[in-house]
């Protein structure tokens, strides 16, 4: 975390399709890799059990394919990131190289965790996503432009509308997703709210 908060109104890069609904954070980063006190180095463990077999030999998985190894826009299906609240999941994806995720829908805590890292999670309907996934398969070198402010995704000369949650859009576009600094500046109001609460008054 740096004090310089960049605006993330636009992400551009090649895509990688990760297919399937209800992909949970236990799959994105298995719990045994969470026995760490920093997030450094988590990238290599992203989707580990789907990417490697018992002998750590690579399996069939897009993240193991050479053509996708420099991808930065992940294209996923519905309810992506459900389950555990572990921020290790988006951290692992980010450290693998993902800068934005386009999907049918996202679990809320996961989307919030992505936002805290400056990773947009934008949504579109099932058909749009399927088409984009197929296009990425065919065009692993093709750029996908995610315009957070305009709520569009452009690929192969094709621009489609996507949805970005209002608060997320504002936070990313204005570079105000560093909520710590924002909220810290309201310290006096925080104290007033705290003092007004019966269960805090009774503690004094």
């Amino acid at each position: 975390m740096t004090e310089e908060i960049p605006e993330v109104d636009y992400v551009s890069g090649t895509g990688i399709p990760i297919r399937g609904n209800d992909i949970d954070t236990d799959q994105i980063i298995p719990a045994r890799f969470m026995k760490v006190v920093t997030f450094d180095g988590l990238g290599q463990f992203a989707f580990f059990d789907l990417r490697f077999d018992d002998d750590d030999e690579p399996k069939d998985h897009p993240m193991n394919e050479d053509r996708f190894k420099d991808s930065s826009v992940m294209v996923v299906n519905a309810n992506f990131g459900c389950g555990s609240s572990r921020e290790h999941a988006p951290q692992a994806l980010m450290r693998w190289g993902i800068d934005a995720i386009v999907g049918e829908s996202f679990a809320e805590i996961f989307a919030g965790n992505c936002l805290a890292l400056g990773i947009p999670t934008v949504t579109a309907d099932h058909e749009t996503i399927s088409e984009l996934q197929s296009w990425v398969e065919e065009n692993p070198d093709g750029d996908i432009d995610v315009d957070v402010e305009a709520e569009t995704v452009t690929y192969g000369g094709n621009t489609v509308d996507v949805t970005v949650d209002d608060a997320q859009r504002k936070a990313l576009v204005d570079g105000v997703w560093d909520t710590t600094a924002l909220m810290k500046s309201n310290a006096r109001a925080v104290q007033e709210t705290a003092n007004s609460l019966p269960y805090i008054q009774s503690d004094d």
Binding site: A167, A171, M183
Partner: peptide, 29 residues
């Protein structure tokens, strides 16, 4: 409403937290 501090520029609400529980896996970072 009881815990609302203010509205942030993002449109989100700044909410006061009455109890913060922590454990070893998600807090060190």
């Amino acid at each position: 409403n009881e815990h609302t501090v203010t509205t942030l520029p993002t449109g989100q609400t700044q909410l006061f937290v009455g109890l913060h529980l922590i454990h070893e896996v998600t807090s060190p970072q």
